[in-house]
């Protein structure tokens, strides 16, 4: 079973890297950008087949390691 975990910065947390990317895109002539925020994607392959159990386990992985919940949110997608 394939899962995707998306980790993004919480609203209100400054993202200097996103700002720099935003500036660089502007420099390339992309004029219609309101803002850019950078995040992380983890593709996790699981051996089980129970989607609900997998979702719960992935949430634990996020809470314990994949995300720092002081500054980041996470979302879990399972195929």
């Amino acid at each position: 079973m394939k899962a995707r975990v998306i980790v993004t910065l919480k609203n209100g947390v400054l993202d200097p890297q996103g700002k720099a990317i935003e500036g660089a895109l502007g420099g390339l002539g992309f004029g219609d950008i309101a803002s850019v925020r950078q995040g992380k994607v983890f593709d996790v392959e699981l051996t089980g087949s129970d989607k609900e159990a997998a979702k719960a386990e992935l949430a634990q992985m996020c809470e314990k390691l994949l995300a720092n919940t002081v500054i980041e949110n996470y979302a879990i997608e399972i195929d």
Binding site: V13, L14, P16, Q17, A20, N68, V70, I71
Partner: peptide, 17 residues
């Protein structure tokens, strides 16, 4: 220590990158 939860807050990329 912040990652371990022993201290409050988090340390992010320097504002000047």
């Amino acid at each position: 220590l912040t990652e371990a939860g022993l201290l409050p807050g988090a340390l992010m990329r320097n504002a000047g990158l």
